[in-house]
Design a protein around this nucleic acid. Structure first.
Lengths: 224, 224
DNA sequence: TGCTTGCAAATTGTCGACAGAATTGCCGAC
DNA sequence: GTCGGCAATTCTGTCGACAATTTGCAAGCA
């Protein structure tokens, strides 16, 4: 995941991506190529290239003749992404229970059974939650699915963050993880699936509210 | 889907994409920017832009300092994509059965119940099969899932093509579609899911062999 | 006052050029 | 005959410039 080269495009890509995931650029805003280029002391070519790659990630949209825009998103779009995530994670779990080696499962269980470190900050918690789900999906050994899942996680991360903000929810999520690990360790496919489905459905139900909160937070300093 | 503008980038994009899906450029081959540019009577800038967008579609890969390559693919990668497709279609079917309006379902059933036209050529058949699955997925009203599914279909199309080449399989696939439509029309979620799962699992099982055939076909005129 | 039209500024679309890295082919040494 | 290193060549990475398009503003007209 680490950027190997220090070429100009990667710099622009990393810069823009960081701004976009943190919503330093508000959704719907136009991204001025020249402005970004001069801000990073480079020409427009690498900026354009970085922006093109960000289209793939779903972070920017492009309108011919008008340029690139920080991608707008809606409540329903986020709900849709959550549904897709559910599809992929459940599929991954099925395949993992059916096909993963005992060693792989044992490794997963060992890694994630240990006591969760006291989450210093919210970002660390979100990161841990995300990595748990990624690791679970990785058990199936399906690289393509993991790729799509990673992309989705990138796009819904801010909602997950809001989602995990409540302490009550936080406790719940962790407990659900433990139940899931337990079922996986017994290689109980049906049981694990039931737990995961419940876990994900709960999140999905909350998405609509969470996105509203997120939007409010993002546009908090907006001039009316 | 139609290209609205006739700008240079879209031209390059369409040209390259057509070549890539038809495997006129062999997997693993390097795509020479200058060559493509002069071939299309344009400069390298729009070509580069088009290539960048093709990364998103999974048709080309990019190695810093070395350029763009027609994407290599492996048997396991195609199998992975089939698994993801299965996840998404099953999820879509679940959501559709649970949430789609009666009108939407009736519309779907009406459109696809009618007698299948005699498939003039194989491409038309592949197209029809693909559109059927897309329409089914669209029933859930999840745009994000449809997007990912479309992307996957683009990448596995040539395998599906091979897959549908045998007349026996062709008959089978059509019959399975009918059974699926029937279950959907009764809004029998469990039944529809069972049929679809069987339908997709059958395809998945055949993928490994089909990909070998496809690769052989693609590289048939290779100089040994 | 409100709408249309035309001009000007800003921004994207495309180009050709140059610098630097990577590849290829050649030549000599072992 | 084969291996290793050097050099020519090819190709990418990035740049600045100009052309084409769009947008915003302002003046003019109903």
């Amino acid at each position: 995941m680490a950027k190997s080269r220090e070429n100009t495009v990667d710099l622009a890509y990393a810069h823009l991506r960081a701004q976009l995931v943190a919503f330093e650029v508000k959704p719907g805003n136009r991204l001025n190529e020249s402005e970004i280029a001069s801000g990073l002391s480079m020409s427009r070519a690498p900026v354009r290239e970085a922006l093109n790659r960000l289209i793939a990630d779903g972070f920017v949209s492009f309108v011919p003749g008008r340029g690139f825009f920080s991608r707008r998103f809606s409540v329903s779009e986020m709900a849709d992404l959550y549904a897709v995530r559910r599809d992929l994670e459940l599929g991954a779990l099925s395949d993992a229970m059916a096909g993963a080696s005992d060693d792989a499962i044992a490794g997963f269980v060992a890694t994630w059974s240990e006591e969760a470190p006291i989450a210093a900050d919210l970002d660390a918690l979100v990161d841990r939650d995300e990595q748990f789900h990624q690791a679970l999906a990785a058990l199936s050994g399906n690289a393509a699915r993991l790729h799509y899942l990673t992309n989705i996680n990138d796009r819904i991360r801010f909602v997950r963050r809001i989602n995990l903000e409540g302490a009550a929810r936080r406790q719940g999520a962790l407990a659900e993880h433990d139940a899931l690990i337990e079922a996986v360790s017994r290689r109980d496919g049906a049981g694990a699936k039931a737990v995961l489905r419940a876990h994900l459905d709960r999140s999905t139900d909350e998405v609509r509210v969470q996105v509203q909160n997120a939007l409010a937070q993002i546009f908090a300093d907006e001039v009316a």
